[in-house]
Design a protein around this nucleic acid. Structure first.
Lengths: 114, 114
DNA sequence: CTCGTTGCTACATAAATAGTAGCGGTGCGT
DNA sequence: ACGCACCGCTACTATTTATGTAGCAACGAG
């Protein structure tokens, strides 16, 4: 059985960008997915659903504390969901991943020159 | 005149991903640009070169401490450079931005439903 | 029942970031 | 020469966030 999500407070979301007019949504997104392990989580969930501990080892042994925090946040904004087979991407989560995907190829090229 | 970059140590880069086989370069990249304000900096430098203080206000008044740290890091990996007209993207920096750019449009759509 | 695994929480420590103040440099008007 | 306003940035402390380890309750298999 899958537990339902009680309200989750995401610290300082949206507040960090008060001053800037330029592209507010993107800055909010950056603030969200620019936290430690956020993108790694999305990336690792893209191919298949994963259990908590599976995710943990795949994310360079991120501490369970952060991992759980990130998962709560990502679920709060509807990018990740809890399923019977572990955590997985939602519809918009998958959308976001598709936008993010080309980064993989670029990173491969980029890694060649330090 | 533009000062040259002395060697910069980027904390824990690459080390956080020891355990994961899957796509190491992308995880290194995530670890780098997934730090606070990194992507915001790249984003704000994409349209034009900017001064330190200009960047600072555009990044939700990020503290000069972090901002300078991020700039050092991004320069160390050759994504950002110091020019006569302030900070700007290098060739690969611009490449990365182009990969990152679609996020802007997606974020606009995404922002509509919380 | 035991054994192993899973999803977490608790807690203390370490690291990253915020938030302010202020220094030296540069240019500009007087 | 002077003040004045900006600039890039460093120093320092306070707060937030992440790490690292231990461990608990729940489950399934044997």
């Amino acid at each position: 059985m899958v537990k339902e999500n009680p309200p989750v407070k995401i610290p300082r979301i949206g507040q960090s960008v008060q001053g800037s007019q330029t592209g507010q949504p993107i800055m909010v997104l950056f603030d969200l997915i620019g936290r430690r392990w956020s993108m790694g989580i999305l990336w690792n969930l893209s191919s298949q659903n994963r259990t908590f501990r599976d995710l943990q080892t795949r994310c360079g042994s991120a501490s369970p504390t952060v991992l759980n925090t990130r998962l709560k946040e990502l679920r709060a904004v509807g990018l990740v969901e809890k399923t019977d087979t572990g955590y997985g991407l939602t519809g918009s989560g998958r959308e976001l991943f598709e936008v993010l995907e080309p980064l993989g190829d670029w990173a491969m090229e980029w890694a060649k020159d330090l």
